[in-house]
């Protein structure tokens, strides 16, 4: 299995810490609804870094990469489909 050097790992940690600082910093700026999406965007970036460098997801091959994305997609669909209901309550028709 692929070996990751200490240097790479530390660099990744550095980026993760910077991103943490960034997400705390932007939370003080009022961007309206955009704040949530920005926070989620930064969190997703951090999550991808952890997946790629700490969890070596790429070494596992296509099956794991695709099924992981599939799981996340399924979760997203779950949330989106639930919003078909809660976002449209009180409207008549489609």
């Amino acid at each position: 299995m692929h070996r990751v050097s200490y240097g790479t790992l530390s660099a990744v940690l550095g980026v993760l810490l910077v991103l943490t600082g960034l997400t705390v910093a932007v939370s003080y700026v009022d961007l309206g609804a955009f704040n949530v999406w920005l926070a989620l965007g930064i969190a997703s970036t951090k999550a991808s870094l952890v997946l790629l460098f700490f969890m070596h997801i790429r070494d596992e091959g296509r099956l794991v990469v695709l099924s992981f994305l599939g799981t996340v997609l399924f979760l997203a669909i779950m949330i989106a489909f639930t919003f078909c209901d809660v976002a449209f309550r009180g409207h008549i028709g489609i």
Binding site: S27, N35, A39, L40, A43, A47, V50, L51, F54
Partner: peptide, 26 residues
């Protein structure tokens, strides 16, 4: 060790999302 590590990283992943969703909502 790798599997224990995977589990630990996942727990970390959850926190990465929990943190902004609870502590940083504006």
């Amino acid at each position: 060790l790798e599997n224990a590590g995977l589990y630990w990283h996942l727990v970390d992943l959850f926190w990465i999302f929990i943190f902004p969703l609870f502590y940083l909502v504006l």
